[in-house]
Structures are given as structure tokens and as C-alpha cells.
């Protein structure tokens, strides 16, 4: 709050009211409702529900399929995060170095940010098409009989590739702005101290980029968890079958298609706790990051 604040009583309340009421109705009510129904077993025909305590949660820990999906989610998040960060960092370092055409490269490398995940997924369907998708044909040349939507591993590969493609721009933008905020003096000093470009990068540039990278790590995990829903849904063409999926997709599937409200709510709560932990971690990093500068 500012020292020179105004002292009206009702005006700030009126100003806050729209936001608070929207949050109350569309955030706290649903979140509370999810928490509550995660402790109940819903009758499939809509005739009331019974309190079952933590049974929905313990069921999940014993559910083979759920554990497999959780496992896939971890691998998926890890690979998407790693590859999109690595490729974006490489491109950002190069874009930061060149003088001629820097602006053009920046535009060309970031515009994919604006493409919706399901649109990217749809493009993926065309590229990984079993009969004549260009990437499928390329894999076939390498001796890999790629089958999207049939083979678990192949479908997972396609999902990861499209998700990485879609996420490179965000990471690129953040890395580039991180690189450009490194003071000139520091760069020049590094030039004098360390003649090899690789040594300069790992010894000086990379540590200075570490706060950006940590921050991006969280952003990317959140992206892989939630925003890839559209990519996953389109690449499996809406037919879950035996296809790989993430935890968020499972929440949607069980609750919306399977009508298992209790189980789906318990999954929602688990995800909420996961995101909460990530965000707390992120806030602590940001606090530390302020001390850096």
C-alpha cells in the first residue's frame, strides 16, 4: 500500500467487489465443492451420495491405471521441459550474438506462441499421419514403423514433439530477455578473463541466467501439466483407448465422460496440492531472485 493512500471507506470495497464476487462464485465455490465431493461416493444414477472418507484417495493409490498415468505425466513433463528449454536456450544464445537480422530471427522464433495447442495438435495429426505424414515417412526411412494412435510409445513421442515445438517460443523470449539484461561490463570482463566461448558461456552467462532458468522450469512444468490438454486430446483424436494421457486428461475423462465424480474430484485435489507445492516453491525462488539483482 502507498503511504499517500486515500481514506474513503466504501469506494475501495466497490472497486474490489467485481473481482471478489467472480472469484467467490467461480473459484472458491468450485474448489470447495471439489474438495467436498472428493470425500463422497456419488451414486451413478444421481440418487445422492455417501460419505466415504479418504476412500477415493486410497482407491487411486491402488489403481494401476492411475499410477501408470501419473508415471507417464512425470516422464512427459520432464522430457517436454528439458527439450523445449534446451532448444530455446541454444536459439536464444545465438540470437543474442548475431547483429544482422536479430529482430527478424526474434519474430520468426516467437510467433508460434500464438498458435492454440489443439491447432498444433491437429497439425501434428497431419504430420504424423500413418499413410503419408512427412514425419512418419522420415521415421520409416530410419526403419521405425511409426503408428500414431495405435502404438503407445509412438503416440507419446508425437505428443512430446508437438508440445516441445509449441513451447520453444515462450522459453526463447524469456531466455533472450534474460541474456539481454546481462550488463555490457560483465560481458566485456568475461571476454578478457576467458577466451573460449564455451568457457565464457558455462562460467559466466549460464550462472547469470540461472534465475530465469529456474523460473522457466516451473512455467514449463505447469505448461506440460495443464496447457498440453489440447495437444493430447487432438493427437488421440478424442479416443483415449490405450493412448498415453496426462493426469489432467484423466480428471476430465473420469469426471466428464466416466461420471465418476468422487474419483475425479479426488484427482483434482491431488493436482491442486501439486500445483500449490510448485507455486510455493516458485514464490520462494522469486524472493531469492530479488536478492540476486
Amino acid at each position: 500500500m502507498k503511504r499517500a493512500g486515500f481514506t474513503n471507506v466504501w469506494l475501495p470495497i466497490a472497486l474490489l467487489l467485481p473481482q471478489l464476487s467472480i472469484i467467490a462464485i467461480f473459484f472458491y465455490w468450485p474448489a470447495g465443492w471439489a474438495l467436498q465431493s472428493s470425500f463422497y461416493l456419488q451414486d451413478p444414477f444421481g440418487f445422492g451420495s455417501t460419505f466415504v472418507g479418504f476412500e477415493n484417495y486410497t482407491d487411486l493409490t491402488r489403481n494401476r491405471e492411475y499410477l501408470r498415468i501419473a508415471g507417464f505425466t512425470v516422464v512427459f513433463c520432464g522430457l517436454v521441459t528439458f527439450f523445449s528449454l534446451a532448444l530455446a536456450l541454444l536459439l536464444a544464445v545465438k540470437a543474442d550474438k548475431v547483429i544482422r537480422g536479430a529482430k527478424t530471427y526474434r519474430t520468426l522464433l516467437m510467433w508460434v506462441y500464438a498458435i492454440a495447442p489443439p491447432v498444433a495438435g491437429f497439425m501434428g495429426i497431419m504430420f504424423f499421419d500413418q499413410r503419408n505424414g512427412p514425419i512418419t515417412e522420415f521415421f520409416q526411412v530410419l526403419g521405425w514403423d511409426f503408428k500414431l494412435g495405435v502404438n503407445y510409445f509412438d503416440t507419446a513421442t508425437a505428443m512430446i514433439m508437438v508440445s516441445v515445438w509449441k513451447q520453444i517460443p515462450v522459453n526463447f523470449i524469456f531466455f533472450l530477455s534474460g541474456l539481454q539484461s546481462i550488463p555490457r561490463a560483465v560481458r566485456e570482463a568475461a571476454m578478457i578473463d576467458n577466451r573460449s566461448a564455451a568457457g565464457r558461456f558455462w562460467g559466466v552467462t549460464f550462472p547469470l541466467l540461472a534465475p530465469t532458468a529456474f523460473f522457466l522450469l516451473i512455467i514449463n512444468i505447469t505448461y506440460a501439466l495443464f496447457d498440453t490438454f489440447g495437444i493430447i486430446d487432438t493427437l488421440m483424436k478424442g479416443e483415449p483407448g490405450n493412448n498415453p494421457m496426462t493426469l489432467v486428461y484423466k480428471v476430465y475423462l473420469d469426471g466428464f465422460r466416466g461420471n465418476d465424480l468422487g474419483g475425479s474430484s479426488a484427482q483434482s485435489v491431488i493436482l491442486m496440492i501439486l500445483v500449490l507445492a510448485l507455486t510455493v516453491f516458485q514464490f520462494r525462488l522469486i524472493e531469492r531472485r530479488i536478492h540476486y539483482t
Binding site: 468450485p30 480428471v251 500445483v275
Partner: peptide, 9 residues
């Protein structure tokens, strides 16, 4: 909490 985790409620 993004909308996705409380999508059903």
C-alpha cells in the same frame, strides 16, 4: 490453481 484443476466443479 488454474481452471484446469477445478474444471469439473
Amino acid at each position: 490453481l488454474p481452471l484446469e484443476v477445478r474444471i469439473l466443479p
